[in-house]
């Protein structure tokens, strides 16, 4: 149900990126990179405002074919999810659920002592779980 799921580190270096369609990978990567500016803005402007207290940032921006949602953890790690615009069946709650699950998977991956913080995520377990999450079968 999602097109692309990306994990971006605190210094905006991509830690993990996966797409459902290899053909579109470049375009989707571009969308993810563009979303980072919006994330930064959202985190800056709302300083002190109640809505900024939430980790889930909501819809960052949308294009003709895609909707881009964002999430920032307390440790400034960003999650970006790209979703098909034409899919009206997908509700906000489900997007939240994707982020919640993604956060769970990420914290598990981070706690692996063999993972070095700041390096890209190569864990197969993490990858499998994210693929499931992306196809909506999780």
């Amino acid at each position: 149900m999602a097109f692309c799921i990306a994990v971006i580190g605190k210094d905006n270096a991509p830690l993990y990126l996966t797409t459902s369609d290899m053909e579109q990978e470049l375009e989707l990567q571009y969308h993810v990179n563009a979303a980072l500016d919006v994330v930064e803005e959202k985190c800056l402007i709302g300083k002190g405002a109640p809505e900024s207290k939430e980790l889930y940032l909501g819809l960052l921006y949308s294009t003709e074919n895609h909707k881009i949602y964002g999430f920032v953890t307390n440790t400034r790690v960003k999650f970006i999810v790209v979703i098909d615009s034409s899919n009206v069946a997908l509700r906000e709650n489900e997007v939240r659920a994707i982020f919640r699950n993604l956060h769970l998977l990420y914290t598990d991956a981070i706690c692996n002592p063999f993972y070095i913080p700041g390096e890209s995520l190569t864990s197969k377990k993490f990858d499998r779980a994210v693929q499931k999450l992306m196809s909506g079968t999780a």
Binding site: G48, E54, N74, Y106, T107, I110, C111, P117
Partner: peptide, 16 residues
């Protein structure tokens, strides 16, 4: 601590 905090702040709102 570095790894643990990621887990512990999962349900916590953003720090001001």
């Amino acid at each position: 601590g570095y790894r643990l905090i990621e887990r512990l702040t999962r349900e916590v709102s953003r720090f001001k």
